[in-house]
């Protein structure tokens, strides 16, 4: 796989999704970066912004299998990962594993915060290990595998906020913003007219090999040691307490933090920056790439304290302070 080919495929996918989705260019790019980076995405936005449509369109453009799980309070883990059912085969009855909807390339966990923590945690193993275990038997998930979860920041009654451990497994947390007037006009034009935009498949039928090559190429993107140090310092600056090397977050950051980012955050930043570099047609990571993916990669990994909530300080504001305080060199 050549970088030019990656860029070509990437741009084709973006263009294909844009046929259906109006706006959200940055979200589309980040989802694709997360997909080729081997991560999962948490989409957060108010209802009606096209989150579900975006995921469906993306999976259609990728030409991979797609399953949707609507998370509700009464949803059980077996409804997601599958269960063993008693079936009759060859004249005898035996338990057979019936795969749940998690067995797909792209899984949409719609309104994931409405399910109970027990159900939410059922996807933990699948997201991290790419396998599920039912009745002591592990079942590998197909590759590529990506969970795209959505959650609603309002209507929090009867919801169960995702635990930190599960949040940490999402590569990016993307905020889906409301459309601008121009975008809204375009949305109306596309959805209320006679013609509905249909997405067509970009990747070939046998796309597994191609996707794996693209994933492989993304990891080979060059990154200079000073830029790696920059990422390390930025992630390290989110730690509120003293660390092994004696450094800690600045007082302006520390006062709002309860927990800092985990090493998964740094991994996500580096891989996301590499994906962004490839998407922009480069084979090396720049500081700009890092700063572009720093927010979606870390905003759900830093846990704000009560003071931040009381003062209505968001994670993005804290990260902005981090970027200000961490020098590039």
């Amino acid at each position: 796989m050549q970088p030019e080919q990656f860029n070509q495929v990437f741009k084709a996918l973006e263009a294909e999704v844009r046929k259906v989705i109006v706006g959200h260019d940055d979200v589309i790019r980040k989802i694709l970066i997360a997909f080729f980076g081997g991560g999962h995405v948490l989409l957060e936005g108010v209802p009606g912004l096209g989150k579900t449509l975006l995921v469906k369109t993306l999976s259609g453009a990728l030409g991979v299998s797609f399953k949707r799980i609507q998370f509700t309070p009464d949803l059980m883990p077996s409804d997601i990962v599958g269960t063993e059912v008693l079936a009759e085969a060859n004249g005898r009855r035996e338990f057979q594993f019936k795969k749940g909807p998690i067995f797909a390339h792209v899984v949409l966990a719609d309104e994931i915060n409405r399910a109970t923590p027990k159900t939410q945690s059922s996807v933990l193993e699948a997201m991290e290990e790419k396998q599920v275990t039912v009745f002591g038997e592990s079942h590998l998930l197909s590759s590529p595998f990506m969970v795209m979860a959505t959650q609603n920041p309002i209507e929090l009654e009867g919801t169960y906020p995702l635990p930190e451990a599960q949040l940490d497994r999402f590569f990016f947390k993307l905020l889906v913003a409301p459309p601008t007037p121009a975008e809204l006009k375009e949305i109306l034009k596309r959805t209320t007219g006679a013609e509905n935009g249909a997405v067509s498949r970009v990747l070939p039928e046998d796309n597994g090999q191609l996707i794996n090559e693209m994933k492989q190429l993304l990891r080979q993107v060059l990154i200079a040691p000073p830029i790696e140090d920059y990422v390390v310092r930025a992630v390290h600056a989110t730690q509120p307490g003293p660390s092994s090397n004696g450094g800690k977050a600045a007082p302006s950051i520390k006062q709002y933090l309860r927990f800092g980012s985990s090493p998964r955050g740094a991994q996500a930043v580096i891989l996301g920056a590499k994906g962004n570099a490839l998407a922009e047609g480069r084979v090396h990571v720049s500081y700009e790439d890092v700063e572009k993916v720093l927010y979606p990669a870390l905003r759900h990994r830093i846990i704000l304290n009560f003071q931040a909530e009381a003062e209505n300080v968001s994670a993005d504001q804290v990260l902005t302070e981090v970027v200000k305080q961490v020098a590039r060199t």
């Binding site: 060059l222 200079a224 000073p226 830029i227 990571v285 500081y287």
Partner: peptide
Amino acid sequence: AKDRFVTLATI
């Protein structure tokens, strides 16, 4: 150069 020379110099 978007950090091309930095990458070349340090990698």
